[in-house]
Each structure stands twice: as C-alpha cells, then as structure tokens.
Nucleic acid binder design. Structure first.
Length: 558
RNA sequence: GCCCCCGUAGCUCAGUGGAUAGAGCGCCAGCCUCCGGAGCUGGAAGCACAGGUUCGAGUCCUGUCGGGGGUACCA
C-alpha cells in the first residue's frame, strides 16, 4: 500500500537526516501519512516536521526540507513539496496511478485484501438476542455491524468466525417456557393464563401450534409453572429457526450458534466450561459469599460494585453464563481476539465483563466490545420505541421486507455505532429510488452494461494501454479505487464499518463524473477506448468489492 | 446522584489533532443530435455554549446546557 511505503520512505529520510547531522537525534514518533483535504496539497501528506520541531529545536520548514531532500526515489512519487507551516506534500506520478488499473484487474476479487491479520483467529459475536421472540428492527443494526465487521476483518487477513449466542438457560427462557405452555394448553381449551411477566406476542401462539402439531396433547396436563424441559427446548429451537431465517433474509450467515446450556455440561473438551471458569475465579479469590449469594469481587478490581454470579437460590446469573462463555471462547477455543457487538442497553455490562475476562487470566485487551446506540424508528411523524413487551414493535423481517435487504444493510451501516440513528420506514420505502444504495448499485450496473455493450460491439479491453489514461477524471477515479485497501486497513483497526457506505458513494460519484465527461466506447479511437474499458473493468471490480464487503448485491443490471 | 454515547447545513448523518468542515435528501439555477438521465454541473445554508491543552481543536481535557442508554440475586 502506497501509504505504508510513504511512511517507510519518510522514516528512512528522517534517519538519514539525523545521521548526516542535519537533524539532532531524537525519538521519531509514528510517521502518520494523511490524506489532505485539498487537491493542491497533493495525494498524501505528513506533518512529521511539525511534530519534530520541538524535540529537534528546529524550524519545521527546515526539518521538512531536510527530510524531503533525502527521500528515496520512487516511481510512484512525482513530487514531495515542503509547505508551510511544516508539511511535506506528496504528489503521485500520474503514470503510476494509471498503471494501477492493471494492478487492480490483476488482483481481481482479491483487490482490497490485506495480510494485516496474519491469519489470527477472531470471533465476532453479534445480535445474540434472547430466543424468546422474533428479531426486532433494532437487532438489524447489530446484525449489519457485526456481519460487515467480520467481512472486513476477513479481508484484512484474519480467520474470522461469526457466532450467535443462544440464551437458552436463563430466567427469560423459563418465562418463555411458561408462556409457551400456557398458549399450548389454551389450544386445548384449557382455562390457563399466560404469566403476568410473560410474552404476550401473537407469535407465541404460532409456536404453540407447531408444538401441538408435533406432539399432540402430550403436555396438556403439565403443570403451567413447571414446563417439561424438552417442551421448552423444542420451543427454543423453533424460535432459533425463526431467528435464523430472519438473518438469512438480511443476508447474514453464522458459522456457529452457541448454546448457553452447553456451558453447564461436560463434553469432549473436558468439564463444563461453567465449572472450570468458576474454579479459576475461586482459586484466584475473585468470588466472595455474602447475603446468601456468590459474588464476583469486581470492586477489588476497580469496578463500582460487586456482581452476583450465583443467586441465593443457587442459580447462576446471566453474568455467570457470560463469564463461562468468554472463558470458553478464549481458553477452550483459543480465539486470539473476540469482538462482541452489543446494544447500548448492555453498556453497563462492558467493564465488568472485561474485569471478569482478566480475572480468568486472559488479557482483557483481547476482548473488544462494540456498543452501538439504539435505533429509533419512525413512520412518518410517529416515533416508535422498540420493546419486546410493546405492541407497536417493528420486526427486523418487516423492515427487510419493506425496504429490501440491500437498503436495510446500507442504512444500518452508514452511521457510526456511537451515534443514535433514526430510521424512517416510510421514507426508506417511498423514496426507494433515491436511496444512496441504488445510486451505488446503479453505478455498478451501468459499468456492467458498458462492458457488455463493448463485447457486443466487438470493442475489446484486452491490450488496452492504461498509460493513455491521463484525463483528470480518469485519474481521480483510479485514486478513489486505490483508497479501498487503506479503508479496509482503517476499518479493521478501528472496528468501524460505517465508512464503507460512504466510500462506495464516493467511488460511484467518481465513476459517474468520469463517465459523463469521457466517452468510453469509441470506434474512432480504439486504443483509448480499450484503455477506458480497462478503467471501467477495474472500477467495476472495486465497486463490487465494496458492495460485497457490505453484503449488498452488485447487480449487473437493474 | 454516578457511569457510557451523542449534540456539525432546514432534515438524516460523515469528518484517522492539521492547511479554505463534506455527503444524501430538501430548496434554487442549469445540462439529453452521443456508450444506461436511477446521471452530471453550479448555488444558498452549519461545528450547542464557556474555559483549557497544542505550532494547530469539529476532533483531546474540564465545566454548563440539551437528547439517549445504563445503574437488578432481568438479559
């Protein structure tokens, strides 16, 4: 990547300047290569001279000159100008830029891939909503963020697994079971009520019907407050199926559906993860008994307070499960990094989870937790708050059905996880043609159309000489394409996939601008035509890659 | 009260401590003898407020105000 090369070049030039005695020997900070906002400042720039000025006790301009003079030669760099108050601005050679078109075509679908991750195993766990109901529209945001983050990390060279934790062991599962049994027995005209704190949704009746179809009246006399375990398990399975199919509709595929229950049973890998994790905590003195319950002594680790892991009833809490779960991820399964994507309502859980991971002997920096702010949905002027208990709930599958998986993903993705976002369903549906996602997809389809057209007319791209690409808009388009690897690197480092939709739009804009000004198919000028067809092919590849990373379709026509 | 996130254009949102803050929608004015007009070009309009750090702050720190979330032996 050009940026890395420039960084290395500046570093070696700075060292050369120091060795020559032109600069005093000072500790060099990381050489940051930025992209100037203004074209007249070149393609890349560094402010290293400004950063060095104080330590070196020298004028930044003089430092810049000293470094610029010693930069190693490069075919890619046409100029390295010193600019006030102490920048070095790099301008790429146009011939080099044009030549990258061939490089991109050669890279093909792998354009944008990096070796950054070195094959390290990373798990991305996302959504993991309780299997007590269908996914809400808000879950869609977590799904898009987690799925695309995983794709980005894969592109960056990590070995990635996508996982969904199925909470099938806790209190909510119990409530779910009691509700389900009541609904089931109601189908047999029994006079039973769903629990007060139960799940009133209609979908529970559908699940009950499925169970009735499968099991007949086997559970008609079961005690309502003590549903048979196999009955609940089957109910959960049906919900998990529904969740899986909702995810498929959004284009999300998991590698693993991890059962919370499995944390409590011994398996081939050894004893129950829960038992092992608790043993480690106990051994390290991180568990204290008080008020009849067992607590994780997190206040001794700098937390605000301790947290219950085993209730006075003897039942483990969700926190206990999560400790065992993360113990399993790191210690049992050996992931080098684990990324959890949680909604803002889990924010309070972050620091104690990290403390717990540390307490079981794992470097907490290996656990990275992405908190995304909650989404509010709007239908026209009406604001809809999401809650599984509320009647005005918006389901993820409804959103996907209304606006399409592509638009849904694109929109969920386009805002940073830190920002609350507003999703106007009416608008997304009504103005479908104005959606940015269509703009980007249209650019892709347009290029595909041109390439197909070229074939029909017998205008081959093969043999095109990209050195003929000298028009400013042609070069601007290539410059945009060259940003993709940098973007992948940045997103993999910051775990911020929201840059992707913005990049895709910019890339599409660059193409449209080029296309408006530059005639591609031109029988009167075959060489230029062939070169531009190559440019189109590279642009299509890059656009397709950006779309694919987002999980958005790259249509050949629309 | 305490903790976390956010206040950027009329609206929805971008903006790795840099050099004159961007996009989409909306608004105004233009562009089709020609490869896909679902396109292109131009214009009006903005960093909540007050201090601080820095050569340089939308970005970092502190405070105020405003919005959201958390603060359970729920998950």
């Amino acid at each position: 990547m050009m940026r890395d090369e420039l960084s290395a070049m500046v570093l070696s030039a700075a060292r050369a300047a120091m060795d020559a005695g032109v600069l005093p020997h000072v500790v060099l900070p990381e050489v940051i290569i930025e992209r100037p906002a203004r074209p007249e400042h070149g393609d890349y720039a560094t402010s290293l001279p400004l950063r060095l000025a104080r330590a070196a006790r020298a004028n930044p301009i003089e430092i810049a000159k000293a470094i610029a003079e010693r930069l190693p030669a490069s075919d890619a760099v046409a100029a390295a100008d010193v600019a006030a108050p102490g920048f070095i601005n790099f301008r790429l050679a146009e011939a080099w830029i044009a030549a990258q078109v061939d490089a991109i075509i050669a890279a093909g679908d792998a354009f944008g891939d990096l070796a950054l991750g070195g094959g390290a195993r990373v798990q991305v766990e996302f959504v993991s909503a309780n299997p007590t109901g269908p996914l809400t529209a808000g879950n869609g945001r977590g799904a898009a963020i987690g799925d695309v983050l995983a794709s980005v990390l894969q592109a960056a060279g990590y070995d990635v697994e996508r996982e969904y934790l199925v909470n099938d062991a806790g209190t909510q599962t119990e409530v779910f079971g009691r509700t389900l049994l009541a609904r089931y027995q109601q189908l047999f005209e029994r006079d039973v009520q769903i629990p007060e704190d139960g799940y009133p949704g209609e979908y529970m009746i559908d699940v009950a019907r499925r169970l009735k179809d499968e099991c007949g009246d086997a559970y008609v006399d079961a005690a309502v407050d003590a549903p048979p375990p196999e009955f609940v398990v089957r109910g959960v399975d049906l919900m998990v199926e529904a969740i899986g199919s909702d995810m498929e509709r959004l284009g999300v595929h998991y590698d693993a559906w991890f059962r919370e229950r499995s944390l409590y049973t011994a398996g081939e890998a050894g004893g129950a993860p829960y038992d092992e994790a608790m043993a480690v905590l106990r051994q390290r003195g991180s568990l204290v008994e008080k008020e009849g319950a067992l607590w994780f002594a997190s206040s001794e680790l700098g937390e605000d307070k301790d947290n219950v892991v085993v209730r006075s009833t003897g039942r483990p809490t969700y926190f206990a499960s999560d400790i065992a779960y993360h113990y399993d991820k790191f210690v049992r399964r050996g992931f080098e990094r684990v990324i959890d994507v949680w909604g803002a309502d889990h924010q309070g859980h972050v620091s104690r989870m990290k403390a717990a991971v540390e307490a079981v002997g794992v470097d907490p920096s290996r656990l990275e937790i992405i908190i995304y702010q909650l989404v509010s949905f709007r239908r026209g002027d009406e604001l809809v708050r999401l809650s599984k208990r509320a009647g005005n709930i918006v389901l993820m599958r409804d959103v996907v059905e209304e606006v399409g998986a592509d638009a849904a993903r694109f929109f969920f993705l386009a805002r940073s996880a830190d920002s609350q976002m507003e999703f106007d369903l009416d608008l997304a549906k009504k103005q479908a043609a104005d959606n940015p996602v269509y703009y980007v997809q249209y650019a892709h389809a347009r290029i595909a159309g041109i390439l197909a057209n070229a074939q029909e007319r017998g205008l081959p791209a093969e043999g095109g000489d990209v050195a003929l690409l000298t028009h400013p808009l042609e070069l601007e388009l290539v410059r945009r394409m060259l940003q993709l690897p940098e973007l992948v690197q940045m997103m993999a480092q910051t775990l911020e996939p929201h840059h992707l939709p913005h990049y895709a739009q910019d890339l599409a804009t660059a193409f449209h601008a080029f296309y408006t000004e530059c005639r591609v198919l031109d029988a009167d000028h075959p060489p230029l035509s062939a070169a531009r067809l190559k440019l189109c092919a590279a642009a299509r590849l890059t656009l397709a890659r950006a779309l694919t990373l987002m999980g958005v379709a790259a249509p050949g026509r629309m």
